[in-house]
């Protein structure tokens, strides 16, 4: 029996992704104008996590590698910003991003060399172990990292100092910083879209599907996995850098493996087989966690129960299930 491809590759670039993305971007741009500041800030957190999950899914969904260590790269981005504030007295968000990208490149390049030679459980355990090394450094070197107290990050200046955070912090975060995050989010989504639909993205999917055959059509497996690892880590590091001004503080918690678990979870929740899955999963997970924390002191129990129910009822994730329902509806009509 022939199985039709879910999304046949067009012979030439088409405008369908843009037709979907532009209205969504416009709606997201309207959020600070129509919703209370708290909602905009909450959504900003979701968009930041979506960038991280998007990076994570380059490894899981496209390369077939399950990392349990992405908290490390998120933390590297966040701590790079915090250390730039502490030691260099920098407040420019653009410099923060440059610093975070440089730090993420260095760490992921190094970790990648160790990890990409392995697959499956060995890869997962290695990434987890390496992330725990970074966590313990952040935890123990308190004179540098602030230990469990963490490091504070003041409101940054944006666009080369054109927009500063002087005044009402809530207003700044829910408007100027929200738009900054939105611009970065749109740029990251566009960039990741190009990457996964590039010849390189096809090579990653080939490695995921059949490593041996990929090698026999000329794909250099370790090299391509390493580049994917690097790109994935940098996206997550960038997310960490955008997250820390929003949060105002970074602690070793964000480097702990349990935070890696959250990144895995939000990606699986949204659906790791689709491009949009990690984005939807990150935003939904962020809302679920926030409301669970606000609802009960036993929020982990509530969140866990809700997530188990969601995963069991939506095995292909939110986006996978939605796609199936749409296809079924279109088949009937």
């Amino acid at each position: 029996m022939s199985v039709p491809a879910p999304a046949p590759r067009p012979a030439a670039p088409n405008s369908r992704p843009l037709r979907i993305a532009v209205p969504i971007a416009v709606l997201l741009a309207l959020v600070p104008l129509v919703l209370p500041p708290y909602s905009a800030i909450l959504l900003a957190y979701g968009l930041v996590m979506a960038i991280g999950a998007l990076g994570f899914n380059l490894l899981l969904g496209y390369t077939g590698l399950l990392s349990f260590g992405h908290s490390a790269y998120f933390g590297v981005g966040a701590y790079a910003v915090a250390l730039m504030v502490k030691y260099l007295k920098i407040t420019s968000m653009e410099l923060f991003l440059v610093g975070a990208v440089v730090a993420s490149v260095l760490i992921t390049a190094l970790f990648g060399v160790v990890c990409v030679r392995y697959t499956r459980i060995f890869f997962g355990i290695l990434t987890l172990a390496l992330s725990q090394v970074l966590w313990s450094l952040a935890f123990k070197f308190f004179w540098v990292t602030g230990g469990t107290d963490g490091l504070r990050v003041p409101t940054p200046s944006l666009f080369g100092g054109l927009v500063t955070g002087a005044g009402d912090k809530i207003a700044f975060m829910s408007h100027a910083y929200y738009y900054y995050v939105l611009i970065m989010f749109c740029a990251c989504v566009a960039l990741m879209w190009v990457i996964v639909n590039s010849p390189f993205g096809m090579a990653l999917q080939a490695i995921r599907d059949n490593e041996t055959r990929a090698e026999f059509v000329g794909v250099r497996i370790w090299r391509y996995r390493w580049v994917a690892f690097l790109v994935s880590g940098v996206f997550t590091g960038l997310a960490g850098a955008l997250w820390v001004p929003l949060n105002g503080l970074t602690t070793p918690d964000i480097m702990h493996w349990t935070f890696s678990g959250e990144i895995v979870f939000m990606t699986v929740l949204g659906g790791f087989r689709s491009f949009a899955g990690p984005i939807i999963g990150a935003v939904v997970f962020n809302y679920l966690k926030t409301y669970a924390v606000g609802y009960t002191v036993y929020w982990q129990l509530l969140l866990g129960a809700v997530l188990v129910a969601l995963v069991l009822s939506l095995p292909t994730g939110i986006v996978g299930t939605a796609s199936r329902l749409v296809a079924r509806f279109q088949g009937r009509s």
């Binding site: 590759r9 067009p10 012979a11 030439a12 670039p13 088409n14 190009v194 990457i195 639909n197 590039s198 010849p199 390189f200 993205g201 096809m202 090579a203 080939a206 059509v217 000329g218 794909v219 391509y224 580049v227 790109v231």
Partner: peptide, 21 residues
Amino acid sequence: ALTIFSREGKIANLAALAASD
């Protein structure tokens, strides 16, 4: 197509859409 991209040395390109070639 992936094989042809590989043969042509274009497989490392991550900055252009495959569909455009």
